[in-house]
Amino acid sequence: MALHLPQAASLPFGSLTKMLPLNKTSSSVSAISKSFNATTSLKIQCKAPSVIVSDQSQQVSRRSGDFKPDVWHYDYIKSLDNNYKEHAYEEESRMLRAEVRVFLSDTVNPLQQLELIDTLQRLGLAYHFKSEINKMLENIYSVDKFKNKQNLHATALEFRLSRQHGYDIPTDVFDSFINDEGDFQTSLSQDIKGMLSLYEASFLLMEDETILEKATDFTSKSLRDFMSRNPGHELTSQVKHAMEVPLHWRLPRWEARWFISEYERMPNMNSNLLQLAKLDYNMLQAMYQEEVKSNIRWWERTGLEEKINFYRCRVVDNYLWGLGMKEEPHVEKLRRVIGNLCAIITLTDDMYDVHGTLDELELFTEAILSGKISVRHLGLRPDGTMVEKRQA
């Protein structure tokens, strides 16, 4: 199954529906989930008129946002039945995690430790190994292995990972790579791996860190030159990926999908780590699908889709806001709450920006401020969780 990483601003239909193929030798995996092409025969769920319309009952002319129909077919999503919820996969995951922990404990070289931490993060597995990662970083940070060393890749990687995990690491770790004019040494442009690491590290800059601003400019030019001269190099795909959007700006789950395919082609790939990454990706997909189903059911229970037609129906898109913020299993409630609240915010935004008249919006605002209208009217508690309707 071909895998493609979407841009963060353009999330494809398959991002929440497709699974990764596991190795055929996997003991507990008997089949690969079928990939559906749900972009055909889509049911139009919402549509805003493209011209100003007249409300015949009140003789009010209303604007139109000309919103496009939702690309997500809700009936299709609700019909998804994902086998990766089964306990057999959890047992396989537990066994693979144990093997990866042995691999982590056997890795003692500081640079290899940093590269392994980076790999775990990009594969979407770091949440399983938080204590091991913290221990490695604490040891590397306290000993300061790479300061004043001529290894740009190691120094930049340590800098980026340390800052990501909250360590106070200054930019003077790059002093040994600066010339007398205060710029990066031009000879560094030949070290493509180092350039790529420095490029990614430069996006964790803080205010007034001009050396990292220079690093972004210097590495961007060097990496673009490298791509034009070496279209078939083993690092070209990683460089191209980084130049599209830096790692620090990417959504972790979409990065994991892309990097799993990239890691599979690497010569030093660890098979247990790869298998765990694929299995964990599929198990999380199953969890996300159940969460978004719940949000869709809540939206349909509100009845708003049948009552009004001026808003953007974007239930799945709104759920993805929460997924982009936190992807770990233990924050399921947060993702669902953010998705539901974003749906309400989108509706309210369209009401103010497109549909309502000034008089109507003043009354609506007063009703909200006085408590006559609240999220409870849409089936939400004050904390954003859903209120289940009682059975008659």
Score class of each variant (00 low, 15 high):
Glu262Phe: 15
Ile133His: 00
Leu251His: 09
Asp191Glu: 04
Ala2Asn: 15
Ser142Phe: 08
Ser10Trp: 06
Lys43Asp: 09
Leu341Lys: 03
Thr385Trp: 02
Phe129Val: 03
Tyr74Thr: 02
Ile338Trp: 07
Ser105Gln: 15
Asp144Ala: 13
Glu92Pro: 01
Arg229Phe: 09
Gly324Lys: 02
Tyr352Ile: 03
Thr348Ser: 06
Arg335Cys: 04
Gln45Gly: 12
Leu279Ile: 05
Val239Ala: 04
Leu5Asn: 09
Gln238Ser: 15
Val108Pro: 00
Gln238Arg: 14
Asn230Leu: 09
Met95Asn: 13
Gly384Asp: 06
Asn139Trp: 11
Ile260Phe: 07
Asp353Ala: 05
Asp66His: 10
Asn37Gly: 09
Pro382Ile: 03
Met243Glu: 04
Lys68Pro: 00
Arg257Ile: 11
Ile344Met: 14
Cys46Arg: 14
Arg229Gly: 05
Gly322Ala: 04
Arg62Lys: 04
Trp299Gln: 05
Asp217Gly: 01
Pro170Ser: 09
Val60Gln: 12
Cys342Ile: 09
Val29Tyr: 07
Asn23Gln: 12
Arg97Tyr: 02
Lys18Val: 06
Lys24Gly: 15
Ser222Cys: 10
Val102Cys: 10
Ser15Glu: 09
Thr219Val: 07
Glu300Ile: 10
Lys326Asn: 10
Leu320Val: 11
Leu304Asn: 09
Asn82Leu: 12
Ser374Asn: 04
Glu91Leu: 15
Gly371Tyr: 06
Met283Ala: 00
Glu200Pro: 07
Arg335Trp: 00
Glu306Thr: 08
Ser187Val: 11
Leu3Trp: 11
Ser54Lys: 15
Leu125Lys: 09
Leu20Ala: 06
Arg265Phe: 07
Phe310Val: 05
Leu284Trp: 01
Phe184Lys: 01
Asp350Met: 01
Met243Lys: 01
His73Trp: 11
Gly194Ile: 03
Ile308Gln: 07
Asp183Ala: 10
Met227Glu: 15
Asp191Arg: 02
Leu80Ala: 07
Ser189Pro: 02
Lys307Ile: 08
Val102Met: 09
Leu125Tyr: 06
Pro49Glu: 15
Ser131Gln: 14
Glu306Leu: 08
Ala277Ser: 13
Ile117Glu: 01
His87Tyr: 11
Thr348Gln: 08
Pro21Leu: 08
Tyr288Trp: 10
Leu304Phe: 10
Met243Tyr: 02
Gln7Glu: 15
Asn134Arg: 13
Leu157Lys: 08
Asn340Ile: 02
Ile344His: 03
Leu16Phe: 04
Leu334Pro: 00
Val387Thr: 13
Asn309Trp: 05
Arg224Ser: 14
Phe36Thr: 04
Ala98His: 12
Arg97Pro: 05
Lys85Glu: 13
Ile211Asp: 01
Leu120Met: 07
Pro252Leu: 11
Met1Thr: 12
Ser27Thr: 15
Ser370Thr: 14
Leu341Gln: 02
Val331Pro: 01
Ala156Met: 06
Leu304Thr: 05
Gln58Trp: 03
Leu20Asn: 05
Met95Glu: 15
Ala8Ser: 13
Gln112Asn: 13
Ala8Asn: 14
Ile52Pro: 02
Lys47Tyr: 14
Phe259Lys: 07
Asp317Met: 02
Leu279Gln: 08
Ile169Tyr: 01
Ala215Tyr: 00
